[in-house]
Each structure stands twice: as C-alpha cells, then as structure tokens.
C-alpha cells in the first residue's frame, strides 16, 4: 500500500515537473518579442508617456504577464494572448497620445484663428480710421480752399476799391480821368502811372482776368482826330501795362473818340468827365463783352 502511494506520489511530482518545465530555456516567442519592441519604443516616446500613461501601464502589465508565462514555459497560446493584449495596448497608447496632441493642436489653432480674426478686425478698424482721417482732411482742405476763395474775393473787392473801379453790367470798370493825361497828349502823367501800376499788380495776382482799355474824348475838335487821340491814350495805358510785364494777349484796346459820353458836352465839367480812359476788367473766364453789344 505504501509503495503504491509512493508510486502515485512520484507520478504526481513528475507531472508537476513537466508542467513547470525545468528542461532548458523557453522557446522564442515572436509575438512576445514584437510586443516588447513596441512597448520599448512607446516607453521612450515622451508624448506617449505624458498623454497615455494608463494605456501604457496596462500594456506593461500584459507584457509582464506574458513574459512570466513564457519563462514558466506555459502554453504558447497563453503567452501569445497576453503578448497580443500588450501589443494592442501599446497601439492604443499611441493613438491616445496622438488624439491628445491633436486636441491640443485644435485648441492652439482655435486661439490662433481668434488671433487672426482679432488682427483682421484691427486692420479693418485701422483702415476705417484712415478713411475717416482722409475724409476729415479732405473736408479740412475744402474748408481751407473755401476760406482762400473767400479771402481772394475779399482781396479782389479791396483791390477794386483801391483801383476806384466801378461794378457795371460789363464787369469792373476802372476809369482813368483826363487829369492823368496832358492836354491833347497821349502820354500818361505820373498819377496815371501809379494807377496803371496798381492795375498791373492786380492783373499779376489774377492771371485769369484780362482787360479791355477804351479811350474816349469830348466833342471838341474833329471827330476822326478825337478817335485817334482816344486810341493813342488807350494804347499808352496798354504800353504801360506791357512795361510792367503783363502779356499783350490779355490786353485789348479800343478808341471810341466822341462816342459814348458819360456827361453833357455843353459844360466844361461834363466835357471833363467825357475825356477819359476806361479799363474794363474781365470775369474770371477772361471774357469781356464789346461795348456795342452791351449798349
């Protein structure tokens, strides 16, 4: 009975030995090797370590289980099973790390998009401000120009006053009386020279304005002689203007002689008024109506 027991016992011990496998190193397991390689790669990847520690830990546990079973020469299917799980867990860790990285990237990109939008709005605001400034400066420019035009108009009025010109239907008319000429002569006296100088200044400042110089006489003396004299007097004024540098194209002259009296030729006072030179200043377009047309 005792031997029988021993026999049984030895048999059992043998079976345990076979199970544990004490004969030599275990056979290579390619799946386990692959899993170990994948795991080491993942373990050295800082993004995986940081972003997927749980999956990595699970992979490690499965790997250790697989290794333990392999060292104990357990059933290949069991070793493979845990190696497979380890391998898949590593892959999961990798995907999880990529997911986290992508989510971080989305956040960053979103804030970048916001920055771009803010930048765009800023650029738009700057552009709007620029447009507003331009509009303002345009308005300012127009205001200044209007002011300038007003001043020029005032100045013109003042000049005209100084010239003792009159506003008539034909425009501004400056009358140079015969006191500015010697009797029966066409030469300007010094008083006449001064008046012409003012006129020349005026014409320099208002280059758009032309003049027509018209000479008149009283009825004393022959009409054709008077006409000639009136024309010569107008021409003296013209010559004086030319001497001051005014272009001849801006000056027209007419000699009307006894025509167009402004007063009665029956009195000395009236005759004096009729002996005159009128300077008609054009509108800003440079046009002057002929006397005949105006009358």
């Amino acid at each position: 009975m005792i031997t029988h027991f021993f026999k049984l016992n030895a048999c059992f011990i043998l079976s345990v030995f076979i199970m544990l496998g004490c004969g030599g190193p275990p056979e290579d397991n390619p799946l386990l090797k692959e899993a170990i390689n994948h795991f080491h790669e993942a373990e050295n990847d800082s993004t995986i370590v940081m972003n997927a520690p749980v999956a990595l830990k699970e992979a490690e546990e499965a790997l250790q289980e697989s290794e333990r079973l392999w060292e104990e020469k357990a059933d290949k299917e069991l070793v493979d099973h845990h190696a497979y799980i380890a391998k898949q867990k590593v892959a999961i860790a990798r995907e999880t790390a990529e997911l986290n990285a992508a989510q971080d990237e989305v956040e960053r990109a979103e804030s970048q998009r916001q920055q771009v939008l803010i930048g765009a709005r800023k650029a738009e605001a700057i552009a709007a401000e620029k447009r507003a400034e331009e509009a303002l400066s345009q308005a300012e420019k127009e205001r200044r120009e209007a002011e300038k035009a007003r001043k020029r108009a005032e100045e013109l009025a003042e000049r005209v006053n100084k010239l003792e010109a009159e506003r008539t239907e034909r425009g501004l008319v400056l009358t140079l009386g015969d006191v500015l000429f010697d009797f029966d002569k066409a030469t300007l006296k010094s008083g006449g020279e001064r008046a012409v100088e003012k006129l020349a200044q005026f014409m320099e400042e208002y280059p758009n304005r032309n003049v027509m110089i018209e000479g008149f006489t009283d009825t004393v003396g022959p009409a054709n002689y008077n006409e000639k004299l009136s024309r010569q007097r107008a021409n003296s004024v013209r010559q004086a203007l030319l001497n001051k540098g005014i272009s001849s194209s801006r000056i027209q002259i007419r000699g009307y002689g006894e025509k167009y009296p402004v007063a009665s030729n029956n009195t000395e006072a009236g005759r004096q008024q009729n002996r005159r030179v009128e300077v008609i200043i054009s509108d800003s377009e440079g046009d002057i109506d002929e006397r005949a047309k105006a009358n």
């Binding site: 898949q88 999961i92 995907e95 990529e98 992508a102 990237e105």
Partner: peptide, 25 residues
C-alpha cells in the same frame, strides 16, 4: 482580445477625427 481590438478601433477613430479637425482648422 476582441475587446482590446475594439478599444484600439475607438482610439484610432477619435485620433483620426481630431487630426482631421486640426487639418480643417
């Protein structure tokens, strides 16, 4: 083993979608 396969499929799908989102953004 089927469960870890499915887990991987899920992680991969989520990761791919997030990467697509990054690309679109």
């Amino acid at each position: 083993r089927a469960e870890v396969d499915a887990e991987l499929a899920e992680a991969k799908a989520l990761s791919e979608k997030a990467q697509n989102a990054v690309h679109q953004l």
